[in-house]
């Protein structure tokens, strides 16, 4: 036993030297004493996961502390978001995702969260693409719309679940065209895209960043991008804007970033504000990520971030309400009809 203990003490000593380090002087108002956790409330490999890991990587050095990214998927991201809300408000537990999610959770009756409950720091804005399995007969968006109308409620659409980007995209299309569809919910954007590649679902309306690899490999066929302008994606070509078919289409992009429940120490928010202005705004890694995968680089925080996020939350919240999917009117949480 003694020998055993001795060996373990030696290993420990070595690991201490390896892991423990002196506290760095970062010159920031807040110096974290232990690693910070960012909960990704979706599965690994999805859009939130990708972006959060890049942001975490960019922040670790200036912050002088480790950032642990934890995947906690399930129930449209509300499981992981709830654990961030339950955590102590000491600045050490963050979560991430699409700003629209935390903005509409309580309208959907999932969990009690609205955008004002959070201090938000945005990284990129994403757009959704309507894509189909290449073996399917739909060559153009017109073909797909005709099929939706011929077989209402039978064409399957893979999304990351209730209130996910893909679900919102489909609801917007429904608002303009009145089509009925069959939503198949998955744990995240990546599984939904894979299910479409595998042929379990015919259509996916998840985000460009999640589809980029499969589009490039020719395993998905893009039909339309849900934004004002056409998208030229590296290795895929030009994807036409949905305005070609629905000229009155008008919805802002879907903002992504990291956030923390209000109530964290003031210094924490100040520190992240400085980090955002100094490092994230100049991050080559995030810029490259956005360029390669069809996203828009939007390093914002504070009031400006809240306003931008609201520009997407408000129409989506009312969309849900009008579609009968909301449990409460958006007006009850102070979102006026746009």
């Amino acid at each position: 036993m003694k020998k055993f203990t001795l060996i373990s003490v030696l290993i420990l000593g070595a690991s201490m030297a390896f892991a423990g380090g002196a506290k760095e002087d970062t010159g920031l108002p807040w110096v974290p004493e232990k690693p910070i956790t960012i909960i990704v409330p979706w599965s690994a490999g999805g859009s939130t996961d990708q972006l959060t890991r890049i942001i975490a990587g960019e922040l670790e050095d200036p912050l002088g502390q480790k950032i642990v990214v934890q995947n906690q998927g399930g129930a449209s991201g509300s499981v992981g978001t709830q654990s961030a809300l339950d955590a102590p408000r000491d600045g050490y537990t963050w979560t991430a995702g699409a700003a629209v999610d935390i903005g509409v959770y309580n309208i959907l009756g999932l969990i009690d969260s609205q955008i004002e409950d959070w201090d938000i720091f945005l990284g990129v804005a994403n757009v959704m693409i309507v894509s189909v399995n290449p073996d399917s007969p739909y060559q153009t968006f017109d073909d797909l719309m005709a099929a939706f109308k011929a077989k209402p409620g039978q064409i399957s659409v893979a999304t990351a679940g209730q209130s996910s980007a893909g679900h919102i995209a489909m609801e917007i299309i429904k608002k303009y065209t009145g089509v009925e569809y069959k939503m198949i919910p998955y744990d995240g954007g990546n599984p939904a895209v894979i299910a479409t590649v595998a042929g379990e679902a015919e259509v996916t309306t998840q985000m460009a960043v999640e589809q980029a690899d499969m589009l490039r490999a020719g395993k998905l066929r893009p039909l339309a991008v849900l934004s004002d302008a056409d998208m030229d994606m590296k290795g895929v070509g030009v994807i036409p804007s949905i305005k070609k078919w629905i000229p009155e289409y008008e919805t802002g992009p879907n903002y992504f970033g990291i956030w923390i429940p209000k109530g964290a120490p003031k210094e924490v928010i100040e520190t992240f504000g400085i980090l955002w202005d100094k490092y994230i705004s100049n991050s080559e890694a995030i810029k490259n990520y956005a360029a390669e995968r069809g996203a828009i680089f939007t390093p914002l925080w504070g009031e400006e971030a809240q306003e931008k996020a609201m520009s997407y939350i408000a129409p989506v919240a009312w969309l849900y309400y009008d579609a009968g999917k909301a449990k409460a009117s958006p007006e009850t949480i102070g979102i006026p009809r746009p």
Partner: peptide, 17 residues
């Protein structure tokens, strides 16, 4: 010895709070 070493390993190597 054991409580100390377990504390060390997890606190510093595995980042358990």
């Amino acid at each position: 010895l054991t409580s100390g070493s377990i504390y060390w390993v997890f606190r510093y190597l595995f980042l358990v709070n």
